[in-house]
Design a protein around this nucleic acid. Structure first.
Lengths: 222, 222
DNA sequence: GCAAAATTGTACCAACTGTTACATTAAAGG
DNA sequence: CCTTTAATGTAACAGTTGGTACAATTTTGC
């Protein structure tokens, strides 16, 4: 709490509302992801912050308010990362391959987000359902896939009648489970699948599998 | 404290330790699955039981002891259900198809078990790793797959070098996610995937996909 | 039958934890 | 400057909750 510049002894503080809120949200995501909704302690969040418990209640009202804002912030950060991915110029099959591989890697590098979604599922997605903010963020994820499907069908590379949502379901399932269930899976069946080699093989497998799925069923030879 | 001498009715009770413990475990699974480890309240578990809070501590020591026994009981029940499935006589490809479809359905009908595993993953599988009981139960799941792979390779139906654990990973991922992430997924992308038709299509898709994966890569036409 | 062990009932507590009342200081407006 | 409002520090409270002390009752061992 030492303000460095001129007068050191005077007990004073700078005001910086936005930085304070961001600080709180950053820590809140970490703690909620770590301990769950009921498991997370406001005192611990406060302790890991540059500010005090008082400010959490000042800005976020109560624990649920903080949780919802943290959930929204977690989604926002991850979706922003996803928007970095540009598939517009690639041919459909390469675009799909790249999207799958990217999703797999992206989930791996955002374990806190995965854990927030796990927690939200434990609570039946009540907070998520109540947040229009989050719902709007997720249409773009499907739009990407819908566009790929449309182009793939138009070029005859993909079979007709593909369901972008079902495809997204499959991609999400494999990429999500890979992070969410690592603790139990590796405890029961070993760490091999999660080694560098194992993960590389898995990602390749998933990409190939998805590509095979969208290709038109060849009646004769290829 | 004082003897309840008011009414002459003698208060008496039957002893039935095993039934009491089973009752407690049954309720504990439900409540832990519903509210998580920190979210679950011993008082609520006791209230939904035929017995009292006192007995929970008498038989299970503390909350963590109860949680671990509940986790073991949940695993035991589900694995017992899986052992009903007999694949010994089927040809390998049909056996695999049946195993995948069965797993998909079995997970759907055991949401409490899925939620217990979710909770365990949130807590980094610490209780699961500490339970030799559970670890022993899960070898058979892999053995089934290993046997199918062995037979499939021997008959030339499957390609060589299949990894039973990686296969199990894929089957689990899709079947698990289907239950675990239904709340968030349907909140964001609609319920269609989880309708009867949607689930049938999904299961078919998964089975086909896995079968295609294990088949030898045809160099020429089929 | 009887003492010891096992099982259950009742009431209670100590600690934790979300939340708030009150006081104080920094910025904004005029 | 001075008033008002926004932002922060300090400390405590009230409800909850895991856990227990003590007693009563049933079963078991002999």
């Amino acid at each position: 709490m030492t303000s460095g510049a001129s007068e050191g002894t005077r007990r004073s503080w700078k005001q910086n509302p936005e930085a304070v809120q961001e600080d709180i949200l950053r820590v809140a995501i970490a703690v909620f992801a770590e301990s769950g909704l009921s498991g997370a302690r406001i005192d611990e969040i406060a302790a890991r912050t540059q500010t005090s418990k008082r400010m959490i209640y000042y800005y976020f009202g109560d624990k649920m308010g903080l949780y919802m804002r943290a959930l929204e912030a977690a989604y926002a950060k991850v979706r922003a990362g996803e928007d970095q991915l540009d598939l517009g110029t690639l041919p459909p099959d390469e675009a799909l391959a790249r999207l799958v591989a990217f999703t797999f890697d992206h989930h791996r590098s955002n374990p806190d987000f995965i854990r927030m979604v796990m927690i939200e599922n434990i609570h039946n997605a009540e907070s998520l359902a109540a947040s229009a903010v989050i719902r709007n963020m997720n249409v773009s994820a499907i739009e990407k896939l819908r566009d790929i499907c449309r182009r793939g069908e138009a070029e005859g590379l993909f079979r007709k009648g593909l369901d972008p949502i079902a495809l997204h379901w499959q991609i999400s399932a494999l990429s999500f489970f890979n992070v969410s269930n690592r603790p139990t899976f590796s405890a029961l069946f070993g760490e091999a699948v999660f080694s560098e080699d194992g993960q590389r093989a898995l990602r390749r497998q998933i990409v190939d599998s998805l590509l095979a799925e969208v290709r038109p069923k060849a009646p004769g030879a290829l």
